[in-house]
């Protein structure tokens, strides 16, 4: 709306009224026309209706599924490389009904929840301390920044050597991949709490402990939840990497097996399940943030 006069295309309702008028024949102002859909959609940052938001998202899904269907049902791609949507769904139904999907799914869920929880339980308090006390930051930051840039994948052989091929090896990879990133992101969030907010609290009689528990902690909470949500997404990547390289169960393992048997539909199914599980964890953290830190919006 703010850009009504400046950015509206030539057919936009109000353009004409801003032209200098001829002194002789003043035209009565035209009634304001409703702005068209295209006009609004092409205005930078202009809000669109909830319906338009929903439809836009659905259209893209429809296009992707449409292309996929055309390629498969139309026989353009051989189904040994690209399975049809119905083949993937059928595979899903059969693996659910004969129960073969569950062990792999539970294995992946178990590993990611375990790794992510262990990492977060340590990273949240430690990140808070790093952002709060300069001495903790000075001690840990150089080492953390070094480790943080080492690719997790480079450590997979080492972890296999040390821990073996079991579940704990995959958990270790997830911890290693997420922990240092979480630390730095949480520390940065804590450091962004304005000094004068701490100062105000001191002048109101807060002790140092009060400042930590009643100012820094609540102020940093939305940032911490965002950090957890973002690193959870990365954890899914590390999980699959770990399962592809060396595992005896999990969705990544299932894909690897399917590749050997040329069961492309099964690979697609595994990818689809990971996507859905990822969406569920993402929604969980979004909901948590909205419920417990709605003030930050």
């Amino acid at each position: 709306m703010r850009f009504d006069k400046t950015f509206a295309p030539a057919d936009g309702g109000s353009g004409a009224t801003t032209l200098p008028r001829a002194a002789a024949a003043p035209t009565p102002p035209r009634p304001k026309r409703r702005r068209g859909f295209v006009d609004v959609a092409l205005t930078p940052r202009a809000a669109i209706s909830p319906r338009a938001t929903l439809i836009a998202g659905l259209v893209v899904w429809a296009i992707v599924l449409g292309i996929w269907s055309a390629l498969t049902y139309g026989g353009v791609m051989p189904d040994i490389f690209l399975p049809s949507p119905s083949a993937v769904i059928e595979r899903g139904i059969s693996m659910v009904s004969d129960g073969t999907i569950w062990p792999n799914m539970w294995s992946s869920i178990e590993v990611i929840l375990l790794g992510f929880a262990i990492s977060s339980v340590v990273a949240v308090p430690l990140g808070l301390l790093m952002g709060t006390f300069r001495i903790v930051q000075a001690a840990l930051e150089p080492m953390v920044n070094f480790i943080r840039y080492l690719p997790v994948t480079a450590f997979v052989p080492l972890f296999i050597l040390w821990i073996g091929l079991g579940l704990s090896q995959r958990v270790a990879i997830i911890i290693f991949g997420t922990f240092f990133q979480q630390l730095v992101m949480i520390m940065d969030g804590v450091r962004a709490v304005p000094d004068d907010m701490l100062n105000a609290s001191y002048t109101l009689g807060s002790s140092r402990r009060d400042v930590l528990t009643h100012v820094i902690l609540p102020a940093a909470k939305p940032g911490i939840i965002d950090t957890l949500r973002i690193t959870m997404g990365w954890a899914w990547t590390y999980l699959v990497v770990a399962e592809l390289v060396a595992a005896d169960s999990g969705l990544g393992y299932m894909s690897m097996q399917a590749m050997r048997g040329f069961q492309v539909d099964k690979i697609f199914l595994a990818i689809g399940i990971i996507g859905i599980l990822g969406l569920i964890t993402d929604s969980f953290f979004r909901l948590l943030r909205a419920k417990t830190a709605g003030w930050a919006a």
């Binding site: 304005p194 004068d196 907010m197 100062n199 105000a200 100012v215 830190a293």
Partner: peptide, 9 residues
């Protein structure tokens, strides 16, 4: 303070 220092939560 000159800056806004209310606790937003």
């Amino acid at each position: 303070f000159q800056a806004y220092t209310l606790f937003p939560w």
